[in-house]
């Protein structure tokens, strides 16, 4: 077991008239080296849960542990350090920085580590080549197609060689062919030993044989696991 969640609650605007319970008493264990899919309709709380697991936000109550290390309640600085070294993120809208080249976008998460520039560039180029993006390596990201943008996002997520990959609705902006292609890439990553956490309400994702486990969510609670 890699990640453990116990009695997690997330309340937005707590104490105000528009208080909203996004996550209610969730307990969950996520195994290492597997592909876990959080399935559910829009507003079910899967993205909120994912962001807490990925140290992008903190739970209102409950405990999140990563390999027996308690994450919830850690100061921002430590959370960032864990996020940087443990998690790689693939966002729904890719969230690449416009105006920067593919290579620069991929290198971006490693800048604060102060690595040797030559080594960093070589690693980024290797990843870019691996995902078949050599041709567009120096192009600005706004010139890329949806599929290419997503592969750049995957390269960026992998640049710090994280143990866990988090993908939020990764196929939402892709057509069927590209979605299937993405699942193929996930399979490849799983074989390299990565733990993958994915949210989706796309059948291509949760019906895919690549997914080892589906966690179904509704109204901030787990319905089926």
């Amino acid at each position: 077991m890699l990640i453990s969640l116990s009695d997690i609650n997330k309340v937005f605007n707590q104490g105000k008239h528009n208080e909203f319970h996004a996550i209610r008493d969730i307990s969950l264990h996520i195994e290492a080296g597997k592909v876990t899919c959080l399935k559910g309709s829009s507003g079910s709380g899967k993205t909120t849960l994912l962001s807490m697991i990925g140290c992008l936000s903190r739970p209102t109550s409950g405990r999140i542990t990563l390999e027996n290390k308690i994450l919830s309640g850690l100061p921002e600085r430590f959370l960032t350090d864990i996020r940087r070294h443990t998690f790689g993120f693939i966002f729904q809208k890719f969230n690449l920085l416009q105006g920067l080249s593919v290579l620069e976008n991929v290198m971006l998460p490693a800048y604060p580590l102060g690595l040797n520039h030559k080594d960093l560039k070589a690693s980024a180029q290797k990843l870019i080549s691996h995902f078949g993006l050599d041709r567009v390596m120096n192009n600005p990201v706004e010139w890329l197609s949806g599929g290419e943008s997503q592969r750049v996002a995957i390269c960026r997520a992998l640049i710090n060689d994280p143990q866990i990959l988090i993908a939020d609705e990764p196929t939402a902006n892709l057509d069927t062919r590209l979605s299937q292609e993405f699942m193929g890439l996930l399979d490849e990553l799983r074989k390299t030993g990565k733990t993958i956490l994915i949210t989706s309400h796309d059948p291509i994702v949760f019906n895919s044989p690549v997914v080892d486990r589906i966690v179904e969510m509704q109204d901030g609670q787990i319905m089926e696991s």
Partner: peptide
């Protein structure tokens, strides 16, 4: 603001 969010999400600290 969006860019700051992206940078933080990919592992930049507030100090960075």
């Amino acid at each position: 603001k969006r860019e700051i969010g992206i940078l933080k999400a990919v592992g930049w600290e507030s100090a960075d």
